[in-house]
């Protein structure tokens, strides 16, 4: 028996009820398209249609039964007026739409204030019952403008080049990068763009929330290399935690359940490691690698020197 046949009966009832209005408004839709829309296999959709075919108003003569035709691979429905309107939204569906609208509101620029007004009206239109989220109870914003994401996705599809203004945090540098975007991926809730960077001559990952501007690149560039993922090697380091374990755990993504004070951490960039350690005020101490230990000491000493000379209190 296939895994899918263990589906809950209630899921099937709901899908059958939702199929009728969808078919009514999409007469002649193909079976495979329909299966995609409802996220099930074509076999399952065919079973559903066969079941619906046996349903209708009391009497159950051809006059009352739902009339479906689907033998040519395209589905049409007749005589299903009773179920033709979509079901009311469930409270979780209302929640999803309200939060989604709240987020869109945050993403729309001031130039499109008329759209904001439309969204505000929609938020009121969606049936709020006593058990729905009040708009004042949620706040969904995003560090990445949806228009940036759209531009990147379009460029990936069209294989065009872009000019990014990018803030590289570890080096604390702001600059232009000419890139050929490859894909967007997510890791632990952070979105990254994988791209061939012409400025670096290699593949690079860019955090979407650090992109400060995007424009089309008019520069003539050689075609990019084959699409292969770059592998940046992770390097091991050893730290000792003297202060808050939670702070150390959050900054270095330590194993949350271990209370050991000496722990192994992984890093991609030595600049990152150095800055993270410095921001811990001496509560997390780097033990290895020794060249990074030395750099931290030098960097902290340089800053101290600045306090005692250049920026002496008046």
């Amino acid at each position: 028996m296939s895994k899918e046949s263990k589906e809950l009966g209630s899921d099937r009832i709901l899908r059958l009820l939702d199929l009728v209005p969808f078919l009514t408004s999409h007469q002649g839709i193909g079976i495979s398209d329909l299966a995609d829309q409802f996220s099930v296999t074509q076999d399952r959709i065919l079973e559903d249609l066969s079941t619906l075919w046996m349903c209708g108003l009391p009497g159950y003569t051809p006059l009352e039964l739902i009339d479906l035709s689907f033998d040519s691979g395209y589905v049409t429905i007749r005589n299903a007026e009773t179920l033709a309107k979509p079901r009311a939204l469930s409270s979780e569906e209302v929640t999803a739409l309200l939060l989604g609208l709240n987020y869109l509101m945050d993403q729309i620029s001031d130039a499109d204030s008329n759209l904001r007004e439309i969204i505000e009206k929609l938020i009121v239109k969606i049936p709020h019952t006593a058990s729905d989220v009040h708009p004042g109870q949620v706040l969904v914003s995003h560090a990445v403008p949806a228009t940036y994401r759209a531009t990147l996705l379009e460029a990936i599809k069209a294989r065009t080049h872009l000019d990014l203004i990018y803030h590289s945090l570890n080096e604390d540098e702001m600059g232009h990068r000419i890139i050929a975007p490859v894909e967007i991926r997510q890791e632990r809730g952070v979105e990254y763009l994988l791209a061939f960077c012409f400025s670096a001559g290699d593949y690079r990952s860019f955090r979407l929330d650090r992109i400060q501007g995007i424009s089309d690149s008019s520069q003539e560039l050689p075609p990019t290399l084959t699409k292969s993922s770059p592998s940046v090697p992770k390097m091991p380091a050893v730290v000792r935690v003297l202060g808050s374990m939670r702070m150390a755990s959050e900054k270095f993504q330590l194993n949350n359940s271990s209370a050991e004070t000496v722990q192994m951490v992984e890093y991609f960039s030595e600049d990152w490691l150095m800055r993270q350690i410095m921001s811990c005020s001496g509560e997390v101490v780097l033990l290895e690698p020794s060249h990074a230990v030395l750099r931290i000491r030098q960097r902290a000493a340089l800053a101290l020197a600045a306090y005692s000379t250049d920026f002496k209190r008046p």
Partner: peptide, 27 residues
């Protein structure tokens, strides 16, 4: 499922007035 219900209303979406956006809640 909410999207399927909305599309079942049989109203054609009009994206012309909306800037190109790829929203992603990423929660």
């Amino acid at each position: 499922t909410a999207l399927l219900k909305l599309h079942s209303l049989g109203i054609q979406s009009d994206f012309d007035a909306i800037p190109s956006m790829a929203p992603n809640l990423n929660i």
